[in-house]
């Protein structure tokens, strides 16, 4: 009963999302704009990151895939759930027999589906337009990294809603917490020789590890299944922390 309720909930979230074509269109367009933009500016350069050489497009396709996951899971989740909370939609649902986890599952699964679709599009455009190699042997590592990253960033987005006081503050707070990280985590800009403190700050947060793990999986020289266990451990730790905070502090009621 509950499982089918949870699955139906995913369906309603998806339907709602596609019913607003303008929002859906730009959700998909934004990562592509970044992919084209950064590839045009830096795509031809030869980069050395963490002692490994790679070309611009091998850097940017997985990097923008990471951005896509972060925006669909962390940014969107943080904003949209806060807006729903402020409107009273969460409270309305909380008064029904729908188990809370089933509602959260609906939003989480929807965000992951959007992420997956975004990553497929980014990878496809990368392969066609920039000749980026799509991982074959590393596909297991790539997929696991992607899933773990999506769940982690969803959990962090949900945890973030606890500190967002109201819907008006949601865009400012979500962006302020994620935009700087996009610049210091080898997503927008390749950090070839960053100052130690900047490298350290980047290492603390999960985004740099997420991007690095995806970039490893995309690197033509990577052998084996493409698992970067160190990076995955950091991402998982953040996921556990985010889940714990969300479970403890998540609110279904609009703040007064």
């Amino acid at each position: 009963m509950s499982a089918s309720m949870a699955l139906r909930q995913v369906g309603y979230e998806n339907r709602s999302f596609w019913r607003n074509p303008a929002a859906a269109f730009f959700t998909f367009l934004l990562p592509l704009i970044f992919l084209v933009l950064f590839n045009s500016i830096f795509g031809d350069s030869e980069l050395t990151i963490d002692g490994r050489d790679l070309d611009g497009s091998t850097f940017y396709v997985p990097g923008i895939a990471a951005l896509a996951v972060v925006s669909a899971c962390y940014t969107n989740m943080g904003m949209m759930v806060t807006i729903s909370r402020d409107l009273g939609i969460l409270k309305r649902v909380r008064g029904t027999p729908l188990p809370p986890w089933a509602y959260i599952f609906g939003r989480l699964a929807h965000a992951m589906l959007v992420s997956l679709l975004l990553v497929l599009i980014v990878t496809g455009v990368g392969a066609v337009a920039y000749g980026t190699d799509v991982p074959g042997n590393t596909l297991p590592g790539f997929t696991v990294t992607l899933m773990l990253g999506a769940v982690t960033f969803c959990a962090l987005g949900l945890a973030l809603t606890a500190v967002i006081p109201n819907a008006d503050a949601a865009p400012a707070i979500t962006n302020a917490t994620v935009l700087p990280l996009l610049f210091i985590s080898n997503v927008f800009i390749p950090l070839q020789d960053p100052p130690a403190w900047l490298a350290f700050v980047g290492d603390v947060f999960p985004l740099k590890h997420f991007a690095a793990a995806l970039q490893t999986a995309f690197h033509p020289d990577t052998t084996g299944a493409g698992f970067e266990w160190g990076d995955l451990a950091v991402i998982a730790a953040w996921g556990v922390a985010g889940t714990a905070l969300a479970v403890r502090f998540f609110s279904w009621e609009p703040r007064r």
Binding site: Y12, R15, S16, S84, G88, K91, R92, T96
Partner: peptide
């Protein structure tokens, strides 16, 4: 509740169906 808050992008039927699905 005192203030009405319903997901805006579903139809009337879909919204009622969604809530019907929550009950035995």
């Amino acid at each position: 509740l005192q203030s009405t808050s319903i997901q805006p992008y579903l139809t009337v039927e879909e919204t009622i169906e969604q809530f019907r699905g929550y009950y035995p």
